[in-house]
C-alpha cells in the first residue's frame, strides 16, 4: 500500500555526526556486505575488477569543503543513505505498492517481488537514496537493517544497523527519534541536529549534527612582535644580479 500510514509514534532512524565522521567509508563497506549477504536481492557490481566498475550501494560518503569568509577551509565527510522521511515522496508515487512505509516504526522499505523496476520512486527522492539494481532490475534502498535490529538470533549489541555497528569513530547513532527522551533525540536537541533539504517537504527522520566551530588558538608567541620582519629584497651579489637583470629589456 503506497498511501502513507498515519505518523507512527516510533520513528526509527539515524543521527549522523558530521563533526566526528572521519570519512573512512567503513559504513559503506559494511552496508554493502550485510545487504548483499542477507535480506533481499544482493547488491550488484558491474565490471568489479575492470576499468569501469559500477555498483549498487545503499550508503555513500561524500566529502565537502566549507570555505568560511575568513580562515582556512574545513573538510566535512558526509555519509548519505535513506532518511526514512515521514512524508516520503518515493512511497506515494509507486504504482504497484512495492514501496511502503511501515506503520509501526516508520521504516521505508521495498517489497522486491512487487517492484516492476519503473524507477519512479528514485525520481521522486530528492536525496538519491534509491538505486536501481542492474542485475536484479528492482529498486534497492536502505532497510535500516530491519533484518538486524529485531533479530533475536544476534547478540544484543549487534541489533543495530550494520553501518552503526561498524563505525570506528562513533559518528553514527541509531534510535527512536519519535521519543523525545531517547538518546538520539537528546543528541539532536543538544547539538542542533538538522534536516537535509527541509524545503522539499519530506520531513526526514534521520538527522545530521553539523560540525562544531573550530577552536581558535590564542597568540602565545610573546617574542614575535619584537623580531625584525624578514626582508624580501635580496642584498649583496644576489641583489646586484636582481637589479641588473631587471634593467634588461623585458625584466621586471
Amino acid at each position: 500500500m503506497t498511501q502513507l500510514p498515519p505518523p507512527s509514534s516510533v520513528k526509527l532512524g539515524l543521527v549522523i555526526d558530521l563533526d566526528t565522521c572521519v570519512g573512512c567509508h567503513a559504513c559503506v563497506v559494511s552496508c554493502k556486505g550485510w545487504n548483499t549477504e542477507n535480506y533481499g536481492a544482493p547488491l550488484a557490481d558491474e565490471d568489479p575488477y575492470g576499468a569501469d566498475p559500477v555498483g549498487t550501494f545503499l550508503n555513500r560518503v561524500h566529502s565537502y569543503e566549507i570555505q568560511p569568509d575568513e580562515g582556512a577551509a574545513q573538510l566535512v565527510h558526509f555519509p548519505k543513505s535513506c532518511l526514512h522521511c515521514e512524508d516520503a515522496p518515493c512511497v506515494t508515487v509507486c504504482p504497484t505498492g512495492a514501496s511502503y512505509k511501515r506503520a509501526e516504526d516508520g521504516i521505508v522499505l521495498v517489497n522486491e517481488s512487487d517492484c516492476i523496476g519503473c524507477g519512479l520512486c528514485a525520481w521522486a527522492c530528492p536525496y538519491g537514496a534509491r538505486e536501481m539494481d542492474v542485475a536484479e532490475k528492482v529498486m534497492k534502498k536502505c532497510t535500516l537493517c530491519v533484518d538486524r535490529i529485531y533479530n533475536e538470533n544476534l547478540p544484543e549489541e549487534d541489533r543495530v544497523p550494520a553501518c552503526v555497528r561498524t563505525c570506528p569513530a562513533g559518528a553514527r547513532h541509531f534510535g527512536d527519534l519519535g521519543d523525545p527522551d531517547s538518546d538520539v533525540s537528546q543528541l539532536v536537541a543538544e547539538r542542533g541536529g538538522l534536516d537535509l533539504m527541509p524545503e522539499q517537504g519530506t520531513k526526514p527522520v534521520n538527522k545530521y549534527l553539523p560540525p562544531r566551530p573550530r577552536d581558535k588558538a590564542p597568540e602565545y608567541d610573546i617574542l614575535a612582535p619584537y623580531l625584525e620582519p624578514v626582508t624580501d629584497t635580496p642584498k649583496g651579489f644576489v641583489g646586484w644580479l636582481d637589479r641588473a637583470l631587471s634593467a634588461l629589456p623585458g625584466g621586471e
Binding site: F57, H62, Y64, I66, P68, L75, V76, L194, P210
Partner: peptide, 29 residues
C-alpha cells in the same frame, strides 16, 4: 530554494563546495 547549502545543511558557516565524490566511477544516480 534547494541548493548545495540546503542539501548538505553546511551552508551556515561558509561556502560549500563538493570536494570529493563518494565513488571514483559513475553510478545509477
Amino acid at each position: 530554494g534547494t541548493d548545495i547549502a540546503s542539501a548538505t545543511g553546511l551552508g551556515t558557516t561558509g561556502t560549500v563546495r563538493a570536494f570529493e565524490p563518494p565513488h571514483t566511477g559513475t553510478n545509477y544516480l
